[in-house]
């Protein structure tokens, strides 16, 4: 039941509880309760809207930041990650394998704003050894959605 709900809403967060109940062979009351539980248990961590800000003329910039870190005794990377997550500019934090330790996604209004944040805030934090910034120039697909709608429905309308 839980998985049925999660599968149904993963790409369709705005579906109403009545439709959701129909899809999962349940009742709106049961679905409502289960959703509440999933939220309380932090299985559903939030509801997110994927917006193409450029389309409404808003300036925005995103960057990936590779961060090399000196791990701290006892807490590894967790303490630093927690500190970083308190910055509103930081939208994602991942612990990764490879050339760096943490991979961040930073959101700002302009590239300059992001660059300032990295040089003046991020790189001065205790434990941060170095950073590499990669600005995102264009987003083609995000969270499973094709942002520019590259592929249209090419099927014949009737067949």
């Amino acid at each position: 039941m839980r998985n049925k709900i999660l599968n149904a809403i993963e790409n369709h967060a705005r579906i109403n509880t009545e439709d959701l109940a129909a899809i999962t062979c349940s009742t709106p009351e049961v679905v409502e309760k289960e959703l509440k539980k999933l939220e309380d248990e932090n299985v559903i961590c939030g509801y997110h809207t994927l917006i193409n800000w450029e389309k409404v003329g808003e300036e925005s910039a995103d960057a990936f930041i590779e961060v090399k870190v000196a791990p701290q005794k006892g807490v590894g990377f967790d303490q630093l990650a927690e500190n970083l997550s308190s910055y509103p500019q930081v939208s994602d934090i991942f612990l990764v394998s490879g050339n760096c330790d943490l991979m961040l996604v930073i959101k700002g209004k302009t590239m300059r704003e992001i660059a300032m944040f990295v040089s003046e805030e991020l790189s001065t934090i205790d434990g941060v050894l170095s950073t590499t910034t990669q600005f995102i120039l264009k987003t083609y697909k995000k969270d499973g959605f094709e942002v520019e709608n590259i592929s249209k429905d090419e099927r014949f309308a009737l067949s």
């Binding site: 099927r155 014949f156 309308a157 009737l158 067949s159």
Partner: peptide
């Protein structure tokens, strides 16, 4: 009989037209 409707839709040249008419997976 599908063909006739296909032509009707095609003639409309209207991007607002949506379809529930396909017989193949999306």
């Amino acid at each position: 009989g599908i063909r006739k409707f296909f032509d009707l839709v095609a003639e409309m040249h209207d991007p607002e037209v949506i379809s529930l008419g396909v017989g193949e997976p999306d």
